[in-house]
Simulated assay, not measured.
Amino acid sequence: MATTEAQWMLSVGLIEKDVNGDTLWVWCYPSVGSDLRQVLLRKCCLTQDSRHFGTFVFGQFSRTWYYISTAEVQEPTALAKVTHFSVVVTSKDFNPEKYAALSRILCRMYIKHGSPVEMMEAYITVLTKGVCPSDENGPFLIKDYDVRKAYLTGSVKDVVSQFGMEAIILYTALMLKKRIVVHHPRIEALLEFTRALPALVWHRKDWSILHPYVHLAEPELQDLKTCPGYVAGFVDPEVSNRPDLFDVFVSLPDGVITVSQSAKDAMAMGKLHKDIGHAIVRSAEDAEGSDSRLIKDISTKTKEVLATLAALASECEDSKVTLEALKRRHFPPATENFLFHLAAAEQLLRI
């Protein structure tokens, strides 16, 4: 019987670009809904005016993760009328390295055989047995791809190194479940940066907030707006003119973080933030420290904050924090404000 991880897979599909320059969705198993299919065609680099093929992209739409590997048909094969193609795997789980490895295997099968039959057989074998043969580095095994590794692959140290003390803005926004939008014209840079951010709030282990590759297309924006808080990546610079989409805007090329006017009150910083920010920067600057160490150090600070919140809740009726209880503690204004909004984010606030 397949492992649970294998059973999270939903479909495998194929997009082709032919010698006439037309890009078409040509095959899938078992099926992909029409809305998701349109999104996948938009994500696929074959539909864009670009010479950068061979890329791997991932993201999610309507709570379904997609992973797309693109290959160029170079040597003479059975794919005589195809110049490039993309293999698309959809799944319920976040694990880019796992699906990059699987989709590369499926790409090689398609180039070799020129038919999706072998791809479908390999997909079913993974689905039922958690394994499929590969012509490089041994067989593909689902069990080799622990989700914890996927969570730790993004570099929190790189995030802190780039923004220093301003990383506390990202931490605060994530703690309060705010909407973070990140812009970079290069997809690869966008994917690498955004996937690291949920690790700043490791206690939640929630990568469902990650939407690393979003277009300014209405179906995608409507899907994004159904999420109470998120980390969303855009290559289109026009997103900076859409304040309805973000509380915090990150321009990666410029190295600038901007808090929107509407979020300034909730995001007000004080001594608590400064202390946490210094702790984060000190840990990141430790040359011998790993990303895991940094995440652990940040988690320690987070646990202290959550312990304060839990202590407050235990004093209140229904274990829900009230503004009156907060005021009785005589916290500094910025700390009181942060704890109030954090209680709301953690569903510990009684209004």
Score class of each variant (00 low, 15 high):
M1D: 08
L10N: 14
S11V: 02
E16A: 12
V19R: 15
W25N: 03
P30C: 13
G33S: 15
V39Y: 08
L41K: 02
L41M: 10
R42F: 04
C44M: 06
C45G: 12
L46G: 15
Q48E: 11
D49N: 15
F53Y: 09
G54N: 05
V57S: 08
F58K: 10
Q60N: 13
F61K: 11
R63N: 15
Y66E: 06
E72V: 15
E72M: 15
V73K: 13
E75C: 15
T77P: 10
L79N: 08
A80L: 12
V82W: 01
H84S: 15
V87D: 02
E97V: 06
E97Q: 13
E97I: 03
K98T: 06
Y99A: 02
S103L: 05
R104T: 07
R108K: 12
M109L: 14
K112H: 06
K112M: 11
S115Y: 05
I124M: 02
I124S: 02
V126F: 07
V126N: 03
K129C: 03
G130I: 03
G130Q: 06
V131E: 08
C132L: 04
P133Y: 01
E136G: 09
G138E: 05
G138W: 03
G138F: 06
P139I: 05
I142W: 00
K143V: 01
K143F: 04
K149C: 02
Y151W: 00
T153R: 11
T153L: 10
T153G: 08
G154F: 02
D158S: 14
D158E: 10
V159Y: 01
M165P: 00
I169F: 00
I169H: 04
L170G: 11
Y171I: 00
A173I: 09
M175C: 06
K178D: 03
K178E: 06
I180K: 09
I180A: 13
V181G: 08
H183D: 04
H184E: 14
E188Y: 09
A189M: 09
L191E: 13
T194A: 15
A199N: 05
A199M: 14
V201C: 15
K205R: 14
W207V: 13
W207R: 09
S208L: 10
I209G: 03
P212A: 15
P212F: 06
P212D: 06
L221F: 08
Q222N: 11
Q222L: 12
Q222S: 13
L224W: 01
K225P: 05
T226F: 05
P228R: 05
D244V: 04
D244Y: 01
L245A: 00
F249Q: 14
V250E: 11
P253K: 07
P253V: 08
G255I: 10
M267S: 03
A268N: 06
G270L: 10
K271M: 09
H273W: 05
H278I: 09
V281T: 03
R282P: 00
A284E: 05
A284H: 10
E285A: 13
D286L: 13
G289Y: 02
G289S: 12
L294H: 08
I295Y: 05
K296M: 14
T302H: 02
K303N: 07
K303I: 10
K303G: 05
L312F: 11
C316F: 12
E317T: 14
S319H: 12
V321A: 10
R329D: 02
H330A: 06
H330P: 00
F331A: 11
P332L: 07
N337D: 09
F338V: 06
A345C: 11
Q347D: 12
L349H: 10
R350M: 10
R350V: 11
I351H: 09
